[in-house]
Design a protein around this nucleic acid. Structure first.
Length: 487
RNA sequence: GGCGCUAUCGUCUAACGGUUAGGACGGAGCCCUCUCAAGGCUUAAAUACGGGUUCGAUUCCCGUUAGCGCUACCA
């Protein structure tokens, strides 16, 4: 049985890169009918926050991808310590009593340190310390960290096959004696992660490429634990347009998935977008349903170079993500879209109910790229009073204020009696244009601006119909007043 | 500094060693059209550089350069 895990550490919000790792794990699990495990890697108590944990759950919940088992590392410390001590007992690790500061690699020119190139490897007298002295000092209460004793004498290198990057080999001479247990007794990430992966019988570890070189250490731990090595698949990293890795401090909230949610992305559009970053179905398909994705997702489709997410101050979201979202919006049913947009309209402060939203939705479906745009694209449907606009906006193409005035006067007459549906309005208004001897467009533009407050808006007849006769007449009257003020 | 990974249009990517190097987003232009969208069509735009191997390299090898990652008692 295939088992994969997603193991975020709650030291920030759910990052878009983490979200992609989760999505890939999920897809891999579902594709192979395996088990998806969510494990919170919260060993670093100092840096964990509840806010961050909440943010992660919020993000995952929004993505709408489930998991089958759930664990928290902080509740499994006993297991981690037990396994670390087994490694120590086997003689594969040793106690290092060096105070924290002097083990700092920055001080590698210290005579006490043993280095290769300029990488700190270990402190010789600690690694060579007799069992008796080590036990005595530990019993005396002297603080120590437990370090893995990298077998540089007996093995020249460590090797494993990555499902994405192929065979990876690293010289033992380049791997430092890494810590398993801190002096506080709390396991390090490497120890806790491997102990849990072993205990939970994880078969495939799919994670960011930033862990590729850590994997040699993990191989060593798995070996020391005497368990079968899981398969590894590392994912290329997601980076910002400036080439740096995404960080909240440097790039702002665009790196958090809740930002996408709040801006009005549909969960699946977001999933679809991140899938295309570092993975390809190898054909020309880009818009893929969740089912299609799970059907065709394989690790062979993952590529090896970092992917840049394109965003800027002006356009905070990658244009392709926005396009994917717009495409998703266009293919949704009117009912689903209406339900999805409603909360965004309400959040913008408009008084709307589901019935009203259902009338408006068809008119904005192909005009919004993000759900939140309902507030700027459909505002005039909700407002009691239109925001002030320049009366010159009422002037039609190749026309003047006088033409605008006569159009509005005629429109008022027509709309007072016209049948208030698409065909009725079409016929009546085109007739009005003819009688005024102007083009239909010249007839429509002043009316549009009068009822919408701007030139760019949904098609006129449907808009008038949804707005209703009373509102239309009221707004046209207001526009005529406005025109009077200009002469 | 050491070690590792990577390198195709601006971006995401495709191409058993043999293609006019394909697609998508974005850009430009045209068409459609009551404005805006949507849609249709057209178009510009790439194999980092230098060496090999080969009849033939985007593809394989080496080097250079660049970017990223790891180098903690963070994860």
């Amino acid at each position: 049985m295939l088992r994969v895990r997603f193991a975020p550490s709650p030291t920030g919000y759910l990052h878009i890169g983490s979200a992609r790792t989760f999505v890939f794990n999920w897809l891999y699990a579902r594709h192979n009918k395996g088990t998806m495990i969510l494990r919170i890697d919260d060993t670093d108590v100092e840096r964990n926050t509840q806010t961050s944990l909440d943010s992660i759950f919020e993000g995952l919940k929004w993505l709408d991808l489930n998991w089958d088992e759930f664990y928290r590392q902080s509740e499994r410390g006993d297991l981690h310590r037990k396994l670390a001590n087994e490694i120590l007992a086997k003689g594969l690790a040793y106690r290092d009593f060096t105070p924290a500061q002097t083990a700092d690699p920055e001080q590698s020119d210290d005579a006490k340190s043993h280095t290769s190139g300029s990488t700190w490897l270990f402190n010789p007298e600690m690694r060579a310390m007799s069992q008796e002295e080590s036990d005595r000092r530990a019993a005396a209460g002297e603080p120590f960290v437990v370090r893995y004793k990298v077998p540089r004498e007996t093995r020249t290198d460590i090797s494993f096959v990555d499902e994405v990057y192929g065979r990876q080999t690293k010289a033992t001479a380049d791997i430092e004696d890494f810590a398993l247990l801190r002096s506080s007794g709390i396991p390090t990430y490497h120890m806790a992660s491997c102990a849990d992966d072993a205990d939970l019988q994880i078969t495939h570890i799919i994670r960011g490429q930033d862990h590729l070189t850590n994997t040699f250490k993990h191989v060593l731990i798995f070996e020391a634990l005497g368990v079968e090595l899981p398969k590894f698949g590392h994912l290329p990293l997601l980076i910002a347009p400036d080439g740096a890795k995404l960080s909240k401090r440097k790039h702002g909230p665009v790196v958090s998935v809740t930002t996408y949610r709040d801006a009005g992305f549909l969960p699946h559009a977001f999933v679809n977008f991140v899938c295309l970053l570092g993975w390809s179905p190898k054909d020309d398909r880009e818009r893929l349903t969740r089912q299609e994705l799970t059907d065709i997702f394989t690790l062979e489709g993952v590529n090896r170079s970092n992917a840049t997410i394109n965003f800027s101050e002006e356009d905070p979201f990658d244009p392709k993500a926005v396009w994917l979202n717009a495409e998703t919006i266009r293919t949704m049913s009117k009912e689903d879209l209406s339900a999805a947009v409603l909360p965004y309209a309400q959040a913008a402060g408009f008084k709307v109910d589901a019935a009203r939203m259902a009338q408006i939705t068809p008119l904005i479906q192909e005009r919004i790229k993000l759900l939140s745009e309902v507030s700027t694209v459909a505002d005039f449907f909700f407002l009691d009073q239109l925001a002030p606009y320049d009366p010159n906006e009422l002037v039609p193409q190749k026309g003047d204020l006088a033409m605008a005035a006569s159009v509005l006067e005629r429109a008022e007459e027509i709309l007072a009696t016209a049948t208030f549906n698409h065909d009725g309005l079409d016929q009546a208004l085109r007739g009005g244009a003819e009688s005024l001897k102007i083009k239909a467009g010249q007839m429509f533009q002043p009316i549009r601006v009068a009822v919408c407050g701007r030139k760019n808006a949904p098609p006129l007849f449907e808009t008038l119909e949804v707005l209703g006769r009373d509102v239309c007449l009221k707004r046209i009257a207001a526009a005529r007043q406005l025109l009077k003020g200009t002469v």
